[in-house]
């Protein structure tokens, strides 16, 4: 369970989040909002990449601002641009890189990395240069590198923004099938039909918090 208790955040003078209180217990939650609405900042607080300047976040009772390491062990994060999150030259090495600190043998790391790639449609790409994969494949690789750590929660910050329509759909369908709790920040409203809850943020506040249909209707009115 992810709890936001009276979250406020400012960059200098500029307030990006103002008194946000949420308890996320659902399996699939989406954050929707205009650019600058604070949704990415809120998502980054879940694994302690950003610390709130007011209020606190709890992930299953643990505060990421105090125990960042413990929380990051359990919360995976997928970013918008896969080029920045792929840190090793080949696909297999990048997935294996996540496992470095697990104290596994090289053979075991490679075996798990291969298994992960095969499961998400990248079988045989172990030695393929990661930066020569297509955009959709790169994002799948970024996902594999996170899932290989078997997190309980997966936060995705606009992971489909750079993908074409077919890959967007595939990626979100994949997210829906994962056992993890998913927090998806997105602009792709059409893909949220199967989500359990949609939180609409507007100028740092919760403007709507509902099932996808009513929440998105509210959002469309808000921006029109």
């Amino acid at each position: 369970m992810i709890e936001f208790e009276g979250i406020g955040h400012r960059y200098g003078e500029h307030a990006v989040l103002d008194d946000v209180t949420l308890r996320l217990t659902e399996q699939r939650v989406a954050f929707v909002g205009a650019n600058g609405s604070g949704k990415s900042t809120l998502a980054r607080m879940i694994n302690g990449l950003v610390h709130p300047t007011g209020g606190r976040v709890l992930v299953d009772g643990v505060d990421p601002a105090r125990q960042g390491r413990a929380v990051r062990n359990r919360v995976g994060f997928v970013f918008t641009n896969p080029d920045s999150q792929i840190v090793m030259p080949t696909a297999g090495e990048d997935v294996a890189f996540s496992l470095r600190k697990k104290g596994l043998s090289r053979a075991e790391r490679e075996r798990r990395a291969s298994g992960m790639l095969a499961r998400y449609g990248l079988a045989g790409y172990e030695e393929h240069p990661a930066h020569q994969l297509s955009g959709g494949q790169k994002q799948l690789l970024a996902l594999c590198s996170m899932l290989v750590l078997e997190p309980d929660v997966l936060v995705c910050d606009e992971p489909t923004t750079l993908l074409d329509l077919r890959n967007k759909r595939r990626f979100v369908e994949l997210l829906e099938q994962l056992p993890q709790q998913i927090v998806l920040v997105t602009h792709d409203l059409d893909l949220l039909g199967n989500f359990d809850r949609v939180v609409v943020l507007d100028e740092g506040r919760v403007a709507a918090d509902d099932l996808p249909e009513p929440a998105l209707e509210h959002y469309r009115k808000l921006i029109s």
């Binding site: 390491r69 990051r72 995976g76 920045s84 600190k101 590198s145 996170m146 750590l149």
Partner: peptide, 14 residues
């Protein structure tokens, strides 16, 4: 972005 991605993968946590 790379720094954030490394942090998210727990690189700085040891």
């Amino acid at each position: 972005e790379l720094g954030e991605a490394l942090a998210a993968r727990g690189v700085d946590d040891d």
